[in-house]
Every structure is written in C-alpha cells, then in structure tokens.
Design a protein around this nucleic acid. Structure first.
Lengths: 303, 303
DNA sequence: TTTTATCATCAGATTTTCTGATCGGTATGT
DNA sequence: ACATACCGATCAGAAAATCTGATGATAAAA
C-alpha cells in the first residue's frame, strides 16, 4: 500500500533532485528516504527517478507522478487547514429546527444577523412541532432545535435563552378589555382558541388554565397563531399569545393584548441538541445571538 | 503527521457508519481502526464522528473532510493506475533528437505512424549535430537519439536499426555517369561537396575516401543535403548521398545517383539513450517502427 | 591516483501499528 | 426489570514498519 510518507519523500526529491538534501528537508536520514522511494517505485511498478552522475533526474512517469503527488499533498494540507480553522466559529451546514410558534417571529430578524456574523454558516431550516423536531434531532437529520423548554430526553442537552411571557388577547370590543391585568380565571369566561393538537404552545396554554377544561375550547384548533389572531379580532374567542409574536401579530391593532397579573405565565425558549454533538460551543454562541434578537422584541405591551 | 491509512479507515467508516464493518472492509480489527480514527481526529483537532446509539454519524466537519478524503483517495488510486499502466506502451513526453541527415527523410513518414500507434506519446523533436545531441542526452534534455552509430560513451546504450548505403551523386552531364558501379577513387576526380564541419555524414564520407584529401573539398561546407544536391545538379561538384534521402532528393531527376561497387560503403542508423534510462523497452519498441519506416524507403537506385 | 560526492545496502534499534481480550454503555427483547 | 446483544473504547503484549549509523559501490573531480 502506497503511503503519504512515500509521496512526501518523493516530492522532496523531485524538488531537490538530491536524496541527501531531500532527506534533510524531511528530517530523516538519507537511507530512510532512499528506502521509502524504492518502496514507492516498487509499489507503482515504475522507475520514478534516474539516478545519474549529474544528481538525480525524474523519469517521464516520475515527472507526471511528482505533479500528481504534489497536488495530493496540497489537498492534504488543505484538509488539515480546514479542520484546524474549523471549530473557531459556527460554519458549515447546520440543520436548525424551529417550532411554528417561534419561527415566524424570531427568524425574520435573526437570519440577516446570522448571515452577517457567520457567512460560512450554511443554514437549513425546518419548521414543525416539537415531537417531530426531537425525533429528527435524534435521527441526525437536524442538528439544533429552537423551541420551548423543557425537552426531556437523556440524549438531548438544552440551554435556556429567555422567557417569553404569555399575554391575553381579546377583541377590541371585548368587555374584559378594561382590566389592567388579566388572571387565569378570565380564560373561563370566553371561548379559548388554541393551536391544533401537538403544538407545545397549546399544552402550555392549557397549563396556564391550570385545568383540563375542554368545555369552552375550539375543538378544531388552528395551525398558526396568525389565524387565531384573525379569529380573535373578529370576536370568535380569546387566546394566549406569546410576547414574542406581538410585534407582528398586534401591528394592525385589531386586538387587545393584556398582561397577566403576577405571577405572569410564560414559556422558556431555548436551544436543544444531541448530547453527543461536538458543536455545543457553536450552539451556545448562536444562543447568545438568538437571545439578543429575542430581547429586541418589544419588552412589554398593554394595547 | 496525518497518514493515508487514517484517511482510508475514515473513508470506510464514513461510508459504513459502523466501525466494525469498516474495520472488516479494511481488513483490520476494530480496535486498530478505532485508534487510527482517534489519532486522525486528534491530528485534525476536530471531532469527525458522533458516536451515538443509532450507529455512527458524521459531524459537519466530518462530512466535509470525508468528501475531501474520498477525493484524495481517488487521486491516489489514479496515481497507482497511471503508474501501473505506464510502461506497457511508449507514452508521455519523449524528447527525441535526430541528426540533420536523417530527420528530413525519416520523420515525414514516421510521425504519422507514431501518432497512430502511440497516441499518448507526446513527442518533442530536436534536430542538430551528433555532438550536441549526445550532450543534451546526457544532460537529460533529450531522452532518445536517432543518429549514425557508433556512439562511444560509457553512459550511452545504442541499438542499430538498419544500414544506410552511400551513393555517388553527380550531375546529369557528368562523365562518370556512364559507370554502372562507382568506386572510391572516383571521388578524387571532382570537387567533393560535403556538409559543414560537425556533421557525422561529413566524417563518414571522408572515411569512405580512405584518406584526408582536403584538396578538392569545398571548404565552406553546407548545412543541408538539399543544398548540396542543388549544387551537384548544377555541376558544382559531386557528393555522397545516403540512400535514405533518395526518395526526396532525387525525385526531381536533376542528378544521377550511382551505387558503389562492393563493398558498398554505408552508415549504420540507430538509436541511443542513457544507459540509466528505464524506458529501454519503449525505445526498442520504437526502434522496430523506425526500422520498418526506414526500410520502406526505396531499397536501391541506380539512376 | 586520490578524494569527494552520491545513492544503495545492511543490521540492529526504535517506533508504530495491530491483535485479542475486555470494559462500559446503550438499546432490545422477554 | 432483567438478560442479551451490540458497539465502540481501552489496554497489554506481539508483530511489523521504519529509522539510524556504518558501510559499500560507483562515478566524477582534483
């Protein structure tokens, strides 16, 4: 089997046209180099060098093979360089999964920042529900998740980024609009509109109600907060909105948004990755950026 | 130092996603492969593989490096293939030196044949006098010479191809035209036109005369047989022509050409190469071709 | 002729690499 | 819950490869 060492030695000889100097360059003795060259010639079944009185000269095969060898050695150097300067900064392909109740609100401001900060990062996005994200993460189809914590899995490590308060959203004409602070009890007074089954925000919203009252729930469920906001605006019910989405969803002013009385219910947004992933430092790095973007969202709102 | 073995093992793992099977493919035990992979990862300062419960998966760096490694391994295979299928047939760059009294007559028919028989042969031609050819051969600037033998040099090996008879060329109106066979003595009767100093044919022609008569020599000498033939045709003297050139030089019928009486004087055309050259088999091969082409020249001539 | 330069060869020392046994951890099936 | 199978890591000793330093052979230079 031909080895890189042989190519390195041969490359040195091809450049120096002299075994002694080549050996010196390679930091070995001349016999060692001689033997490797001979072995290489035997492996290749060709004489690469003409040992003559006027030093060494390359045979025709030798010339061609020296060129190819030099190219291989360059490629090898590139591999090492690439690997070494890897790790410094998030780069390469990164498959990021985001839940639907975050994606539309975090990604628009986040993506430009990412592109600027980490131009070598080749981001691939996937938006779906937590359970699917987790499975795809474990399967290796995704590398990193942005979702609501906690994620309970022994193979997954998470990092919290920031808390995202829940706010009560009602129609402009709704009677409870007068209140300064909402309470969970108010949720019982009207039909509660939630995302369809499987969305973590649905479960979190139900948790806020503290009980499994299915009575005043819209049974169908919607697949996006936007749709729910439209419904709320048209008096079809009330809902909980994450503070994160306010900037987008209340921009048109068609709904009222009321903060809860203390303790304000909230969800924790965080990152998740395979415990076995070596990119944790990058993920933490990215987390800082996402946190910064998340906090740049309006810090509070009451109308 | 990173080694090809490591890349080979890593490539196998990248394809198999399984240390055991990869090791089997590489015909080593799993620990051996494991250790090489670990060493590679350390050399590169990057984790290449994520060892997970669902088998092994490549990290992002791993994927990139696996691709590059595969490419390097392919290049290596190409080098070996190239080298192995080398030697079969004359190919690659070949610097051929030819003396001026052969080149114009052998090359026109030879080159098309060469191109057809050995399409991978990249022929570079040099036409000059023997002494220069020999020096350039020893210097490695030329690989093979086509010239008149013998060549006396301990570092040069030669192979005779065919004999090339000398013929006496006179003008149409010359009195000795009547003779059926020429003799060396006839050369004394008229001015002998020869190539300039340094051409082997000049020396060979003088040898035919058996003596160093400079009396009736054209002192200047010409640099090509064509010119001499013109001079002969115009009655400026006589000359010796190699049979090889007849087809070209007597085509126009402006001169008379007479064979010598036995023993017919001749020169031996042959090949010469550095004794240290590994391409001797190719040269012998090429020699057969040149011989065939040389013999296809008119076998004799008397007018 | 002697000297110098250069690559090849050789034996023994050194280093690298491999094997075979074993460990620890995880997933799977009962 | 337990037993089992699987997988990669680890380790010590064996085997193989590589290197060194001395020497040889040959050709060019002095």
């Amino acid at each position: 089997m031909i080895s890189l060492k042989q190519l390195r030695y041969f490359d040195a000889v091809a450049r120096e046209k002299h075994f002694g100097r080549a050996a010196e360059q390679c930091a070995v003795t001349q016999p060692a180099l001689s033997m490797q060259i001979q072995d290489l010639e035997q492996q290749l079944g060709t004489q690469l060098l003409e040992r003559g009185r006027r030093g060494v000269m390359l045979t025709e095969s030798g010339r061609e093979i020296a060129e190819r060898a030099a190219k291989v050695l360059t490629d090898i150097r590139d591999i090492v360089d690439f690997a070494r300067h890897q790790g410094d900064v998030p780069a390469g392909r990164l498959h990021l999964g985001v839940i639907p109740s975050i994606a539309p609100y975090i990604l628009p401001p986040l993506l430009p920042v990412l592109r600027e900060q980490y131009p070598d990062l080749d981001l691939h996005l996937r938006e779906t529900q937590t359970q699917h994200l987790v499975r795809e993460l474990l399967d290796g189809q995704l590398d990193l998740l942005l979702l609501g914590l906690p994620v309970e899995d022994p193979h997954i490590e998470t990092a919290a980024l920031f808390d995202d308060r829940f706010l009560l959203a009602t129609s402009k004409s709704h009677p409870i609009t007068a209140n300064l602070r909402a309470t969970p009890e108010m949720l019982e007074q009207d039909r509660l509109l939630l995302l369809e089954e499987g969305h973590c925000m649905r479960d979190q919203a139900l948790a806020v109600c503290d009980l499994q009252r299915v009575g005043n729930l819209d049974t169908s469920g919607s697949s996006s907060l936007s749709t729910i906001v439209q419904m709320v605006a048209n008096g079809l019910g009330i809902t909980l909105l994450p503070e994160l989405c306010l900037d987008v969803e209340s921009r048109h002013g068609a709904i009222n948004v009321i903060r809860f009385a203390d303790p304000e219910p909230s969800r924790t947004i965080g990152l998740a990755w395979r415990r076995s992933s070596p990119r944790k430092p990058h993920f933490v790095e990215l987390g800082k950026l996402i946190k910064a973007v998340g906090n740049r969202q309006p810090p509070a709102a009451s109308a």
